[in-house]
Design a protein around this nucleic acid. Structure first.
Lengths: 339, 339
DNA sequence: CTTATTTTCGCAAACGTTTCCGTATTTTAA
DNA sequence: TTAAAATACGGAAACGTTTGCGAAAATAAG
């Protein structure tokens, strides 16, 4: 362990007191310019790196933000993380990242781990299983700045960032209707999720406005096993009264649909049109290319980080008030919805 | 700040000394079972969370592993991280994750940030720009356990995990040859990368063995701008002497190829067969489905974490010796290579 | 019953910073 | 010329934990 030099040793080398060296390095006004120069150059020469534990213990700050996501193999969340990291890195913050794998028990454990000062703030998107939010309330009550994005938790009075789920789903559904769809199904994971509810509302509104029937079997609640989902979708597509359009609330269900129709006589878009919330760059390369509702993932991440770091560094100027900030998605029309 | 209770307060509540409480919580043999029970139940009741700064300062351990990757929007790296996290979480380790965005300057800054004890170990895949490795040597000399995966740095005498790049590229190229390809191109990012070199060696060996010509223009060195890459590939495909097969060293270049041929009269696989190193789950849904060399990403991540945590917890039993451990890839043949 | 041993616990130091406070020196003001 | 103020630095405490050492109480041995 070639452990680096510490402040005391550095001070001894300079024949100065540790307090003086500390102040010099922190650019205190009570240290002369000359001394500062000497200290800084010696620190560089000896490659002095301040111990973050000691500093953290003293200051009670970790310069670290925890990010909790339900899934990593997912372009949306990956882009959000890139957005967060961009801002965080520029401000000298580090990122602890946790994947709950859509498992609320894991989510609880992770949240508990964050109660000891390891992170200065938390930004998260809840798992699809999360209905009891007591662990999140505990985190909030601890006083840790906490914000949600995408899959938000309305019970916690803090700032949340989402996209215009209702409007996008409404517009997307309307697009299918304009393309001639009469029987439109809605694919979702967990009904409990905020995004599911909002997107379903948008879908329902468009259906109702067009005077179309709303078949109960067309609201398909899927899970997290791809194989099962493909089976569920296949069952629906082979039923007596099969849909001619699909609005998918998440990317993976659109892909499951592609798998489901593969090798069958059902053709997209002729027999079945499909639009999906999705952030994959491969949408244009699918067969046929997939019409998507693309979320502003990077922007969401950036905004989360800006607000959080603002709150951490200038608590007077930033407040995590109980509000939902909406950043609109873009609908990109491709071949899966136009014949 | 409803900061939690600390050890001293907990001890006062129990009318015990802090040292006793500490030992009780750490299951020391010198504390009676009865006292341990009391302490533990009171700690739970008051939701005591040990301060990690104090502990880290005392023990000089952070229980944190830093992961440095060159790209986040990439299924391979996402899967590796999932693998690392699975093992790490089970052992109580946290993950600091950094994305270099293929930028060696960013890589250097990040590596420098890790010199102060923020992480107990580092696992990384170098950026495609990394040729000067002095920053990595400094990290290594600090005594921080360091291992590489996929894009390794051979200059550092530590353990590295890779897939069988040479053999997979050889087999993949041979597969194209068996399918009748005579003029096979190789698509790569940065020539400096370990994986590029190995995969190119495998490709070359197969070409040579089959007695095929090795056109210089068929070794296409791309960069990180998708648009440019599509242009480069398009130029190659429209040239006089165009290839009838492509081996792509990375997923993104295979996708760029799909984009390049889109809307042209070149058909895959009739006019052009393509195989690529790739870990996307969408390979089967592309048009046509893409033959892939799929890397054991999750396993690689798990093995990295197992070794690293082993080294951290039982230094006597684990050694980070200078070796390269190879975990084989799987070739999955799909429509892009069979007519 | 005395002595030796074990069990159980408390005291205090240490980890490396930052910062409150005090002090010696220099500069400014009267 | 003297008092006041500004400047530049040192000493020491504090952050919350773990652990070496010592000591009291309980038990075992003689």
């Amino acid at each position: 362990m070639a452990a680096g030099i510490n402040l005391k040793e550095l001070a001894a080398e300079l024949k100065l007191a540790p307090s003086t060296v500390s102040r010099a390095l922190n650019d205190s006004y009570e240290i002369s310019e000359e001394t500062k120069r000497k200290v800084i150059s010696m620190a560089e020469k000896l490659n002095y790196q301040p111990n973050q534990f000691a500093r953290g213990l003293r200051e009670n700050k970790s310069k670290t933000i925890a990010v909790i996501i339900p899934e990593r193999i997912n372009n949306f969340f990956a882009q959000v993380m890139d957005g967060i990291e961009e801002i965080a890195q520029a401000q000298g913050y580090h990122l602890l990242i946790y994947n709950t794998h859509e498992d609320v028990d894991r989510e609880k454990k992770i949240v508990n781990l964050l109660l000891n000062g390891r992170a200065d703030a938390v930004v998260m998107s809840v798992s699809s299983q999360t209905s009891d939010v007591s662990h999140l309330e505990k985190l909030y009550r601890q006083g840790l700045p906490l914000i949600f994005f995408d899959r938000i938790c309305s019970e916690i009075p803090t700032t949340k960032f989402i996209t215009n789920d209702y409007q996008s789903a409404y517009d997307g559904t309307k697009h299918l209707i304009q393309q001639g769809c009469k029987k439109i199904a809605f694919l979702m994971i967990s009904k409990e999720l905020s995004i599911t509810k909002e997107r379903y509302r948008g879908y329902s509104a468009a259906i109702k406005e067009a005077g179309l029937e709303k078949e109960p079997a067309f609201s398909l609640n899927c899970n997290h096993c791809d194989e099962e989902n493909i089976g569920l979708i296949r069952d629906m597509l082979w039923s007596e009264n099969r849909p001619d359009g699909i609005v998918s609330a998440v990317e993976k269900l659109a892909l499951a649909t592609y798998h489901a129709v593969k090798g069958t006589k059902i053709r997209i878009p002729e027999d079945l049109k499909i639009i999906s919330f999705a952030n994959t760059t491969m949408a244009g390369l699918l067969n046929p290319s997939l019409t998507t509702i693309t979320q502003p993932a990077i922007t969401i991440g950036q905004e989360c980080a800006k607000l959080l770091i603002g709150k951490l560094t200038k608590p007077k100027h930033y407040e995590l008030i109980d509000q939902v900030i909406t950043i609109p998605s873009k609908i990109i029309i491709r071949s899966s919805t136009v014949a």
